[in-house]
Design a binder for these strands. Structure first.
Lengths: 234, 234
DNA sequence: TTGGCTATTATGTATGCACATATTAACCTG
DNA sequence: CAGGTTAATATGTGCATACATAATAGCCAA
């Protein structure tokens, strides 16, 4: 009764294991057979099974531990991977005309929270850029950004009137890791005026900070006009 | 000049390639050496290089095509993977007391948009569940859900007063794929009353729909109380 | 020139083997 | 029986090899 169907690709094994999990043949918390046994059952090499199970573990459906074996995740954590595109490309992808308008740009002492995030001393200055991104001429997002000149000194000479700080940094500053927060916030009066909406409107806000090793590179707040949404499949 | 440092693990290769991308030794758009050459340079097997490059491609840093080779992604699409937890676990993870309050539950004809998403006929009925999730007694999120009884008939008998539809579905209905949207929306009067906030407050909203193959399972709207945010690292 | 065939090339994947490593179970030893 | 040592086990990874597959380049013929 064993060898009718052959699962000789890691995709096939992946799909079959996934099926067994979904059909509750293997229930959450259950230990599943080890790789050797599965390889024998599926008629393939252990490395093939390994790759399939690894993919499922990456997706959060399996918990694997050496010696302890593999078991079906107790709480199938839904993981969604979403793309954080450069705003211009996001707008152009919708076949809209991208526009960019620098509002202000100055060397200044950042407010406390920003100073803390950038790990700056109380009197240290940073480059502040406030700009508007437009889609077909309509305000799409406000970019409120602070750039750490200690980490990216060239930013002092960049021409943020032509290219957005967003894009300039992508091309001119590398980062090793970052941190993104998504939230909903009511538009302040200033933001409402810039975006051309009523004060208090619900804005989708993305806060992002990036570091190069231990040095903070930049921290930015992107406040999107009402109607903006991020979508993904799982 | 070749063999001083050895990169004999896929992690080491991964890190070295990543370094070269970040340090702009290999610039966006550049073609990088093929796997065989890299294997020779790094003093390891091609499969080791393959695994490293595959990981970087998954992360969006490399574009790979058969025969065409591997090149550094032109627009390093930032991909963020974020966890979509079950609300109860999310609250408990913050060491808060989880509470759940069913508001209403009925068999009804869903409104047009929901009907469209669930792919139901004009007179078809579905199970509607409205509930409140509480953290330390304070309203945390409103769950407004429609369940397709054609796909999940057992939902008609479930006791949504005790266990949230959210969790009941995790345990009782499987899905093959889904679709998630994040947005910011102003609280309606009804929502504001339920959450105990001012009408018009900015709410973080997650809309999720899941399917089992071609059959829609459920569609839900989770509106979070102000202050809620989703965070992740990149 | 056009259209299609073919060879080439780089990635994609399967396999069998070996060894590494984390973790647990079993076994001592005092 | 406590506590530590050792063996057993499942996953993790590396390697060499082979073949599969996609995409291109080059060629040839109508």
């Amino acid at each position: 009764m064993t060898g009718q169907t052959r699962f000789n690709s890691w995709q096939a094994v992946h799909d079959e294991v996934l099926r067994r999990i979904r059909e509750r043949e293997w229930k959450p918390g259950d230990s599943i057979p080890n790789e050797d046994d599965l390889a024998r059952e599926f008629g393939c090499a252990r490395s093939t099974v390994n790759r399939a199970l690894r993919a499922l573990a990456d997706a959060g459906l399996l918990d694997r531990r050496r010696r302890a074996g593999t078991r079906v995740a107790l709480h199938p954590v839904g993981k969604a991977t979403l793309d954080i595109p450069v705003i211009r490309r996001e707008i152009e992808a919708r076949s809209q005309r991208y526009g960019y308008a620098l509002q202000s740009r100055q060397d200044a002492v950042p407010p406390g929270p920003v100073r803390a995030v950038l790990n700056l001393g109380p009197d240290a200055r940073a480059q502040h850029v406030l700009a508007l991104h437009l889609a077909d001429g309509r305000p799409q997002a406000i970019e409120d950004r602070w750039i750490n000149l200690a980490t990216v000194p060239q930013a002092a000479d960049a021409d943020f009137a032509k290219v957005s700080a967003n894009e300039w940094l992508v091309d001119n500053a590398t980062y090793t890791h970052g941190d993104i927060t998504f939230s909903a916030q009511s538009a302040t009066a200033a933001e409402a005026a810039l975006l051309g909406v009523d004060a208090g409107a619900a804005l989708f806000v993305i806060d992002r900070t990036t570091w190069h090793h231990d040095d903070a590179v930049t921290t930015a707040r992107l406040a999107y006009a009402p109607g903006y949404r991020i979508q993904t499949r799982i």
